[in-house]
Lab assay of single mutants.
Amino acid sequence: HNLTITQGKLFFHYNPKLCLSEIHKMEEVSGTKGRQERNDIALKTNGDQASCENELLKFSYIRTSFDKILLRWEPYWPPDFRDLLGFMLFYKEAPYQNVTEFDGQDACGSNSWTVVDIDPPLRSNDPKSQNHPGWLMRGLKPWTQYAIFVKTLVTFSDERRTYGAKSDIIYVQTDATNPSVPLDPISVSNSSSQIILKWKPPSDPNGNITHYLVFWERQAEDSELFELDYCLKGLKLPSRTWSPPFESEDSQKHNQSEYEDSAGECCSCPKTDSQILKELEESSFRKTFEDYLHNVVFVPRKTSSGTGAEDPRPSRKRRSLGDVGNVTVAVPTVAAFPNTSSTSVPTSPEEHRPFEKVVNKESLVISGLRHFTGYRIELQACNQDTPEERCSVAAYVSARTMPEAKADDIVGPVTHEIFENNVVHLMWQEPKEPNGLIVLYEVSYRRYGDEELHLCVSRKHFALERGCRLRGLSPGNYSVRIRATSLAGNGSWTEPTYFYVTDYLDVPSNIA
């Protein structure tokens, strides 16, 4: 807008934040220059609390790290170098490059900038070799853009010569660093050979998330399962459950009422301010606690030095998902009996873990797994792929695949051998790939016309006998059925096997 004052003059007093240069501009645009008398524009009460600059400061050096910015700028000295009290560095987070010096300023003089007072450097006698002032900004957020400017702080001049310097606002972004852990990993099994893994992005990506790394490792069953005799009275049979499938998407929606109208769909109840505040506090606490764990609990591995020492970490090797089922080394339970199943799973520490690289999504279907087997899954978020990966501390989750139908069934015939004193040795093959492992066998036998009897055969007993022995049988026709019990439950009964026990007292003698 054009402003013209045809008559009258300007009068400025007691404006401590208004620089004289701005008042002189007002004289020019209003056409009143030359009308004012000496005392109409006070030299001592206008701009006496402001830094009124008329020179431009330029930054000469900028260096960044993930949490620091090192700045240096060209030296500046007023005509009387004693008038320079120091520099004021202003900075704040700036997602967009549209910041002005006066953003967030209120009537009390406060604003949204963080201000650092910096002492002037030592003055050199040689004007050509003056030290460049600077400042190291610490405690910054990774991968965050900051708006920065600097200006001088000078003393009051009796001659009211307006001098000083100020830089333009520059924008500097800190470097990326390792992201925080992925949030809320959930693993479920939808079949006997697959596990579905879902997660949420890290709360602090500290860069642009480029991919996720998912490692999985087959877990050995508890050692007590191999040692305890679950045929003993009072000892509860062990059981394991597989990871249940995901709930429906509708039930997972946030901010939804727990109660549904019987007449149909209901609208979600909005969260109160107290609920939102509580969630923010919980989120802040979780982030602080995660940072504490990362800094205190997890110790970084030592990389190899120039002395030739090897990095103890196993090298990563990509495998196809079809090879995942046989990740671990199978060892027989008892070496003397080769027909026992290889369900003991000690994992070799030198073995390469299978892994998958996930790009542009937060889910993965891990296939080719062994049925009813526990897996430990390790999830890392990465925001750099080359020249070397920059990934987060791992988040861990466990899951067990679903049982395989008929995996616990005894394959092959049940054979028998009759000894003296009416002892019958029953023999059968253990299931080759049971659900988890076989903890015991149930032997059901009966003599024709009598009630059915049951015998429990422990895992250890089966390994020693290759089956079991029935003792003290009365003469007669017998039928026997056997079924295995694994961590997933009972298998199917075998087809009945028949044998006849004679009275050993009636056996004919070869003595003449």
Rank of each mutant, 00 (worst) to 15 (best):
S203K: 15
S203W: 03
D204K: 00
D204L: 04
D204S: 15
G207C: 01
G207S: 15
N208S: 11
N208V: 07
I209L: 04
I209C: 11
H211P: 01
H211D: 01
V214A: 03
V214K: 00
F215K: 13
E217S: 12
R218G: 03
Q219C: 04
E221K: 08
E221F: 12
S223T: 09
L225F: 03
F226I: 13
E227S: 12
L228T: 06
D229S: 13
D229N: 12
D229M: 11
C231W: 01
C231Q: 01
L235V: 11
L235E: 09
L235N: 11
L237W: 13
P238N: 11
R240C: 08
R240P: 10
T241Q: 11
W242S: 10
W242I: 04
S243D: 09
P244Y: 09
P245W: 08
F246K: 08
E247R: 13
E249W: 06
E249I: 05
D250M: 08
S251Y: 13
Q252M: 08
Q252L: 13
S257W: 03
S257C: 07
E260P: 11
S262A: 05
A263H: 07
C266Q: 10
S268F: 05
C269P: 07
C269V: 08
P270M: 15
P270S: 11
S274L: 04
Q275F: 07
Q275Y: 06
I276E: 06
I276D: 03
L280I: 10
E281K: 09
E281N: 08
E282W: 14
S283F: 06
S283R: 13
S283E: 11
F285T: 03
R286E: 08
K287L: 07
K287G: 07
K287Y: 12
K287A: 09
T288Y: 14
F289P: 06
F289L: 08
E290S: 04
E290N: 13
E290H: 08
D291V: 08
Y292V: 08
L293Q: 09
N295T: 06
V297W: 09
F298A: 11
R301I: 04
R301N: 13
T303Q: 11
T303L: 04
G306S: 07
T307F: 08
E310N: 14
E310W: 09
R313E: 14
P314F: 15
S315V: 09
K317C: 11
K317D: 12
R319T: 07
D323P: 05
D323G: 15
V324A: 12
V324F: 03
G325K: 11
T328F: 15
V331F: 12
T333M: 13
V334E: 03
A335P: 12
A335W: 11
P338L: 09
N339E: 09
T340H: 04
T340Y: 09
T343V: 10
T343F: 13
S344N: 14
V345C: 05
P346S: 14
T347F: 08
P349D: 14
E351Y: 13
H352L: 13
P354K: 09
K357G: 09
N360K: 15
L364V: 04
S367H: 06
G368Y: 11
L369M: 13
L369P: 01
L369A: 14
L369H: 01
R370T: 15
F372K: 02
F372A: 08
F372I: 02
G374V: 11
Y375K: 00
Y375T: 02
L379M: 06
Q380E: 02
D385K: 13
D385S: 01
P387I: 11
R390S: 07
S392W: 04
V393E: 13
Y396P: 14
Y396M: 15
A399I: 13
P403T: 10
P403M: 04
P403E: 04
A405E: 13
A405R: 15
D408R: 00
G412R: 10
G412P: 13
P413T: 10
V414C: 03
V414P: 06
E417L: 09
V424G: 03
V424T: 03
L426M: 04
L426F: 07
Q429C: 12
E430T: 11
G436T: 11
G436V: 07
I438C: 06
I438L: 11
L440V: 05
V443K: 00
Y445T: 06
Y445K: 01
Y445P: 01
G449P: 08
E451M: 13
E451F: 13
L455H: 08
V457P: 00
K460A: 09
F462K: 10
F462N: 01
A463H: 09
R469A: 07
L470N: 01
R471M: 07
R471D: 03
R471P: 09
P475V: 09
P475D: 04
N477D: 11
N477T: 04
N477Y: 13
Y478W: 09
S479L: 03
R481F: 04
R481L: 11
R481V: 11
I482M: 03
I482N: 00
R483G: 01
T485I: 12
S486T: 11
L487I: 10
L487V: 12
G489R: 05
N490G: 15
N490Y: 13
G491Q: 02
T497E: 09
Y498S: 06
Y498N: 15
Y498F: 11
Y500A: 09
T502K: 08
D503V: 12
L505H: 03
D506Q: 15
P508W: 07
